[in-house]
């Protein structure tokens, strides 16, 4: 699922611009679990640049094959079934890039990710982006953008969020936002947005950490 989603995001041949920001958030030598890892681009970059010990979970069979082709370890399956195998705090980073919006219950997966990972890196397309707002406001149509290229009737994106909504969610569930990187991603480059990101950024990357330690050391 997420493999297909990702193919609609542009790639500049090498690493997608937004991925480099994610790679930069990861400390060298870390363990990483990439949920909805697609064809493994990000995992490969983490392995190369950060000597990270990576593994992924992916639903699309062609994407799984691409991961194996890259020498990556990947689990072919649904995201929600994947995490039961992982103990609390068992990996340094759990990564969810452009995956949340296609899930039935993104809230449950984020909380699971926050249980398993010491930190989570979550990225979402921003539905508060001005182009999205303008299409609905002035044209009166369901918005379509680079990140959200689908028609209303065939979109897999069933849980879209704005950056503001996502920050509220984190606050409500005790997830401390250690870092937020808001971007507008163009064909050739990717620009960081500092001013009114919920309006001017079309993509947000959040590095999260649980505010309170888990109670009960091992629920598995």
């Amino acid at each position: 699922m997420s493999g297909e989603i990702r193919t609609v995001l542009r790639s500049n041949g090498d690493l997608r611009h937004e991925f480099q920001y994610i790679v930069n958030t990861v400390k060298p030598g870390s363990t990483v679990l990439d949920l909805g890892c697609g064809s493994g681009e990000l995992m490969k970059a983490l392995q190369k640049q950060k000597r990270a010990r990576v593994q992924g979970i992916e639903l699309s069979d062609t994407a799984v094959q691409s991961c194996v082709e890259k020498g990556l370890f990947v689990y072919h399956g649904d995201l929600n079934e994947g995490l039961a195998d992982f103990n609390d705090n068992s990996v340094d980073y759990v990564i969810l890039t452009s995956t949340l919006q296609v899930l039935e219950r993104p809230d449950l997966l984020i909380l699971e990710a926050a249980r398993v990972g010491r930190q989570c890196v979550v990225s979402v397309p921003n539905f508060g982006y001005w182009r999205v707002r303008f299409q609905l406001m002035f044209q009166g149509v369901m918005p379509k953008t680079e990140h959200l290229p689908y028609e209303w009737y065939d979109t897999p994106n069933i849980h879209l969020t704005t950056l503001t909504d996502f920050r509220r969610f984190c606050k409500k569930y005790g997830l401390h936002i250690e870092q937020e990187i808001d971007l507008v991603i163009g064909e050739q480059s990717c620009k960081r947005i500092w001013l009114l990101p919920n309006f001017f950024a079309d993509y947000g990357i959040f590095v999260l950490r649980r505010e309170t330690p888990l109670t009960g050391s091992d629920k598995i």
Partner: peptide, 9 residues
């Protein structure tokens, strides 16, 4: 243990 899993359709 390092493991990959693939279900072939």
């Amino acid at each position: 243990v390092d493991v990959s899993y693939a279900e072939i359709q």
